[in-house]
Design a protein around this nucleic acid. Structure first.
Lengths: 120, 120
DNA sequence: TTAGGTACTATCAAAAATGTAAGTAATGAG
DNA sequence: CTCATTACTTACATTTTTGATAGTACCTAA
């Protein structure tokens, strides 16, 4: 999530794949452990940091911060800070963030049918 | 890809997420670095190990093997070994593998529009 | 003056994913 | 007998991701 090595093989492989395949590109962006769950919640409306935290019971503050920062960098989430004390920060999907809806829907659909298949 | 620790926090987090959210479940299965590209190629028809390798110029044999094994475990790919020498092994998508088509299509669509957005 | 709430950051450690390099089995061709 | 071919495996190293823990700034209310 931070401190990647631009000289590593892994980095150049990821870059090359992202350049050539939009699906690998997308997977790189939304493939973090908590990324899709965060986006799913935000699809229902904007949330504050603590509200997200409550909805993801096992996430650490660090992980939540890192994922939100990456989402922000990638223009998927808009971060709004209110000049109040105690602080209030709201996270909301951008248009390209909301555009994840069909992706998530298909992932859910596929996930459900795969789960059924393997539970037999 | 192998040797995961069932006692780790990471493992229990992943398990819990997979149980609760089908989209996280799906992402866990198809989220490997090369997974989607492999599936994309196989969507066009079955391929031998070496044919896949040629299509993924930078993958190592180890990575290709690991990814294929995981896909096989997850019933996404069927592996057929022919009793010949030198060996011939074919990889083909199963029905649930072919069912990834709409997922991949949406990922591509989203990836493309995201790329456009950030290239400006 | 002190405690409390919010949204963090900084270090460090562990685990997971990926990459490197070399070796293996089987057998048919020459 | 040796070599070539295919589809791997093994042992190890590196990189990346994730987690544990503690601490910070800010103001407000008591």
């Amino acid at each position: 999530m931070s401190a990647i090595k631009p000289t590593s093989t892994n980095f150049s492989n990821k870059t090359a794949l992202s350049d050539e395949c939009p699906e690998a590109y997308a997977s790189n962006i939304i493939g973090g452990q908590w990324t899709l769950v965060i986006c799913s919640w935000l699809l229902l409306g904007k949330l504050r940091f603590n509200e997200l935290k409550k909805r993801l019971p096992n996430i650490t503050e660090r992980m939540l911060t890192l994922h939100l920062r990456k989402l922000e960098e990638n223009k998927i989430v808009k971060r709004t800070v209110y000049a109040e004390v105690p602080p209030r920060v709201e996270y909301e999907l951008t248009p390209i963030g909301y555009a994840l809806q069909p992706v998530i829907t298909e992932l859910e659909r596929w996930g459900d049918s795969h789960k059924k298949l393997t539970e037999e």
